[in-house]
Design a protein around this nucleic acid. Structure first.
Lengths: 224, 224
DNA sequence: ACCTGAACACCGTTCAAGT
DNA sequence: ACCTGAACACCGTTCAAGT
């Protein structure tokens, strides 16, 4: 497998030259085949028939690899602008789509929390959000910081849900039990509270609720 | 610390019997000595002069180990209730304390995002938050879900800041450049926007701003 | 039941050497 | 400059065997 003379031509898919694009392609393949938790430098390198060291010319670290991927996935997002749909509805829809997309690849969502997946698709998403918040009369700072806050929340929602699904997190029953066992002396407010409420609601309900809180807050604009 | 026979007295610190408490003690020591990113099952086990397998009788996995620790750290939190301080100020103060505490141990903050550190101190924190939101006239659901949202935001803030400090994240300059390079055709709204705003503000300012958004949203209570 | 050594199945990253 | 094999320095978790 070194400088091979033009033998039979296509004995194998012909080892592609390394490049950022080739890496993304290989990574997408690994993602689909092995799942997000297996999306490691080593596996992508193996997919490219090389050692892990080779990738470091193109990606600074794993987090960057993840960010690269996320932007790729975002290509599937529906970012169409629709005059007739109220801004709030549209925003709910796009964030819901975004969370769904990330949730399918739980591990990636964790990375999304720490890097802005700075690719063209992510920029398009930000562009749409900005347009929506502007149409809701948010001023510059509120819009910009608000987008950060909204995406942060979406990322957490995806990561949390994925953690729950993979069994890495703790189950809600456990949490409910702890809350219910609040001591009357040490935690009087909690003891007098219907703690079941904490764990109520479907993920969807809670996401929607939380986003509304955010949007209410953003459009209230106290400017304190 | 156990019922020790009066032998020669202090030949060694006397290998303590394993227990959840002993594990927490050892973990706190590792945390202080080696930092949060080194707080692994293996290191804590080594600290206890045993193999990693031994800990699995007491902790289900690393995440649980982290959760245990977080609750321990929360012991230092000032949770006093003060009639004279307006609820909003008090809430800002306690969340700010909480974030500071977690930020010092960045890696732990990441775990806090996926487990409720269900120990007595965490319950006390929740108790205080509940009391504060109730005094702001939030109904049950709004208070409970709101606390979840607030803590989520605090956890992210801590984790993000820690990631930035450790160099794992991406630096803001990079992000600013990407945003500024928005293409006029593909990202018209962004191109016409002063993208510098996205990365403006100190962490403190942004935290305070975000929490106010949350609180504004929570106290608005649209009930849609 | 509790505890353990050893193994299993991996990681990310760096380095010295090649081309 | 780009690419690589090999090594470094770790991980979490499980298992079979002991007490």
């Amino acid at each position: 497998m070194t400088t091979r003379e033009p033998i039979s031509r296509r004995e194998r898919p012909a080892k592609p030259a390394l490049s950022r694009e080739a890496i993304i392609d290989a990574a997408l393949l690994v993602l689909e085949r092995d799942g997000a938790e297996k999306l490691t430098i080593r596996r992508v390198a193996a997919e490219l028939d090389t050692g892990p060291a080779s990738l470091y010319v193109y990606v600074k670290n794993v987090t960057v690899l993840h960010a690269l991927l996320i932007d790729g996935l975002l290509a599937d997002l529906d970012l169409a602008w629709d005059d007739t749909e109220p801004w709030r509805e549209r925003l709910h829809r796009v964030i819901s789509d975004y969370v769904d997309l990330l949730t399918e690849h739980g591990n990636l969502a964790r990375s999304a929390m720490f890097v802005w997946p700075d690719g063209p698709h992510y920029l398009s998403l930000v562009d749409l959000l900005l347009r929506l918040l502007q149409s809701a009369d948010a001023d510059e700072k509120t819009a910009a910081w608000g987008i950060d806050l909204i995406l942060q929340h979406a990322n957490i929602a995806a990561a949390e849900w994925a953690a729950r699904a993979s069994g890495t997190g703790q189950d809600l029953d456990e949490l409910a039990t702890t809350l219910a066992s609040a001591d009357e002396r040490r935690h009087p407010t909690l003891a007098a509270f219907d703690t079941a409420v904490f764990v109520q609601g479907t993920p969807d309900e809670r996401r929607r609720w939380a986003l509304d809180i955010l949007l209410d807050g953003i459009t209230t604009k106290r400017h304190r």
